[in-house]
Design a protein around this nucleic acid. Sequence first.
DNA 1: GACGTCCAGGACAGATCCTGACCTATATGA
DNA 2: TCATATAGGTCAGGATCTGTCCTGGACGTC
Lengths: 338, 338
Amino acid sequence: MSDTPARLLALLSLLQTPREWPGSELAERLEVTTRTIRRDIGRLRDLGYPVEATMGAVGGYRLVAGTAMPPLLLDDEEAVAIAVGLRTAARHPVAGIEEASVRALAKLEQVLPSRLRRRVGTLNTATVPLVPAGGPSVDPQDLAVLAAAVANRERLRFAYQTADGAGSRRLVEPHRLVVAERRWYLVAYDDDRDDWRIFRVDRIRQPHPTGMRNAPRELPGGDAAAYVTSTLYSLAPTYSAVATLHMPAAEAAARLGDASGDVEPIDERTCRLRGHTDTLEWLAFRLVMLDCEFEVHEPPELLGYLAALGARVTRAASPAARAPRAGDAADDTVDANN
Amino acid sequence: MSDTPARLLALLSLLQTPREWPGSELAERLEVTTRTIRRDIGRLRDLGYPVEATMGAVGGYRLVAGTAMPPLLLDDEEAVAIAVGLRTAARHPVAGIEEASVRALAKLEQVLPSRLRRRVGTLNTATVPLVPAGGPSVDPQDLAVLAAAVANRERLRFAYQTADGAGSRRLVEPHRLVVAERRWYLVAYDDDRDDWRIFRVDRIRQPHPTGMRNAPRELPGGDAAAYVTSTLYSLAPTYSAVATLHMPAAEAAARLGDASGDVEPIDERTCRLRGHTDTLEWLAFRLVMLDCEFEVHEPPELLGYLAALGARVTRAASPAARAPRAGDAADDTVDANN
DNA sequence: GACGTCCAGGACAGATCCTGACCTATATGA
DNA sequence: TCATATAGGTCAGGATCTGTCCTGGACGTC
């Protein structure tokens, strides 16, 4: 009896199960008359959620795709699955929707019951990274905290570790989260230094909101993403890579994706790749994954890295020969600001 | 005025933004009095959604984590981000929540507006696969269709391509979706053959529900996952791999994850890996990604694959030498049933 | 072709609920 | 101390909701 909004939500929840519901069954579950069910269905339709009905003896109601997203009513496991998916998406950002990903993650983490958060955490640490890290990886939970602070225009305090290992404590007004070169950066106004700064998120430790709101501040130039990339290019000792791929240019471009540099055809079966990167491991990984013959011309560091990798793999395939182990990890020395 | 449930949903949507909302601002947005806002907040609390309020001059309301998941109200971009995340999760299943992932995906795809679905599709094809496929990859949208049919107990018609290339049309009663050995399988009762069958999802083409419901049918033995793995072991010519890793056993186990076989220590710095796999590329990929010295002892196919890979990488690092291209793709010949 | 089953929706009466307009109490930061 | 925020009681008038009728249309089955 009564409590209409709760019943509407329950009805939405039932209808989101991908199956057909006869009105009588819905009425039974929600303990109301079928007439009320029909009225509720009408209400949902008025709200813009298209409920489709098939008439006839085996008919029923089902929620279909409309023009607006209905509220998603998830059970525990589904919520965990989405959280895990968003966390890995935060670690391997997809071009164009990185920011929406962290927004969704922040939204979800805000309301995720603690028992589910624990499950997400254990699943997350149990999941193995699929690609070379290329430096420390970001903590998705920290990322959610930063996204919340950005949305809330709330001052943020955190410990920041610079490239040379020194640590410092910061109080900033967060402005935007940006992905550049496969890394997360926080664009923020540093209150102590009275200037704009860019922080690598994987070097931020223990961020917590202070509760102090700050007035929106305009970034000079406006575009945060452009600000980050321009700062990176002016500061970072990125490598310029040139390679020849024995693969049609179109196919190589498709398999490399958009963020891997320029591909121009040499002839029908080969092409030239030019790109810049600050993580040799990542570039080498992508080239090997292409599963085609290729030759690297520059930079010498990448040549060295690939030579070491090839030698290691060759050693692995010839167990008869035993050799002293050679360290072959290339280090990453790029930093955004001090 | 009026339409309380819609206002409650709108209020929930606002509160899910990770920020604090003063009651007056909420009242303004929703065009009601602050008194009504306070009442609505109370209603939400009665429904079990914990709205926290900070009193005082800079107070406000915010939705915090409770014991149950509130309905997620997403904007377009967030919905797309979640869909993309779930699709990649379907391609790289995480142990333990694979089924919840596809359930959530099916739920989302069911109500995703078509314009957003298009965006998800283009983003999805633009996204490059991060790991070696090891055979054809599943279409997440097909997976969602299968999951919906499983939940709806609806008969399903599809074209199935067997290992030897022959195609057949099937009419089945879907029972469960299961991940085994990094692949999706559909456990279903084949109506034409009057027996239970296991189908590799990546070989299923154009699945579509028929609208015919079927009575729930009990799988002999009960456990669908066990049924799949036992069938696979009895049928599939998997490789048995043995390798020595120059890495502490604990670290290797952590970095390999749970599904990669048994790791036992040899001494403090080395360990032995035993596993079985039907995709050489995947195992080789994981071993190389460990970023440590290792030697493979078995199977010979893996040795050959690694030798070819090492040679290719070495060639790439020595652009002076030019050699005729050697094909080095290992084929995957495992099948679940005919 | 008749029948049962399902969705669609109008009319109506009675109970319920909701909103806005008061009011006071309390907590917090400037 | 003051301003501002949440918290919540009360009350009256009006809107809304529910259940119980009803008719009609669509669809599959017997």
